[in-house]
Amino acid sequence: MKASYLETIALIERLHRQCMDVVKNELDRQGVRDLNAVQAMILFNLGEAELTVGELTQRGYYLGSNVSYNVKKMVEHGYLKQERSPHDKRATHLRCSDKGLEVCRQLDALFEAHAGDLGSNGLDDKNISAANDALHRLEGFWAAARLSVRPSYTSAA
Results as ranks from 00 to 15, higher is better:
Leu15Asn: 07
His16Pro: 00
Gln18Val: 04
Met20His: 01
Asp21Trp: 02
Asp21Arg: 02
Lys24Cys: 06
Asn25Thr: 08
Asn25Asp: 15
Glu26Cys: 08
Glu26Tyr: 12
Glu26Lys: 10
Leu27Trp: 12
Leu27Phe: 13
Leu27Val: 05
Arg29Pro: 01
Arg29Ser: 15
Arg29Leu: 14
Gln30Glu: 15
Gly31His: 08
Val32Gly: 02
Val32His: 09
Val32Leu: 10
Arg33Leu: 12
Leu35Asn: 04
Asn36Ala: 06
Gln39Ser: 13
Ala40Glu: 07
Ile42Val: 11
Leu43Thr: 06
Leu43Asp: 13
Asn45Trp: 07
Gly47Asp: 13
Glu50Phe: 05
Glu50Pro: 02
Thr52Arg: 02
Thr52Asp: 13
Thr52Leu: 04
Gly54Arg: 05
Glu55Asn: 04
Gln58Trp: 10
Arg59Ala: 07
Gly60Cys: 09
Tyr61Asp: 10
Tyr62Val: 13
Gly64Ala: 05
Gly64Arg: 06
Ser65Val: 01
Val67Phe: 06
Tyr69Cys: 05
Tyr69Val: 08
Tyr69Gln: 08
Val71Tyr: 14
Lys72Ser: 14
Lys72Gly: 10
Lys73Asp: 01
Met74Thr: 11
Val75Asp: 12
Glu76Pro: 02
His77Ala: 03
His77Lys: 01
Tyr79His: 01
Tyr79Asn: 00
Tyr79Gln: 01
Leu80Cys: 05
Lys81Arg: 03
Lys81Phe: 11
Arg84Leu: 09
Ser85Arg: 05
Arg90Asp: 09
Thr92Leu: 02
Thr92Val: 14
Leu94Glu: 11
Arg95Met: 11
Cys96Arg: 09
Cys96Lys: 06
Asp98Pro: 02
Asp98Ser: 07
Lys99Gly: 15
Gly100Asn: 03
Cys104Asn: 09
Arg105Phe: 06
Gln106Ile: 10
Gln106Arg: 11
Leu107Ser: 08
Leu107Pro: 10
Asp108Asn: 02
Leu110Asp: 00
His114Gln: 12
His114Trp: 15
His114Ile: 14
His114Pro: 00
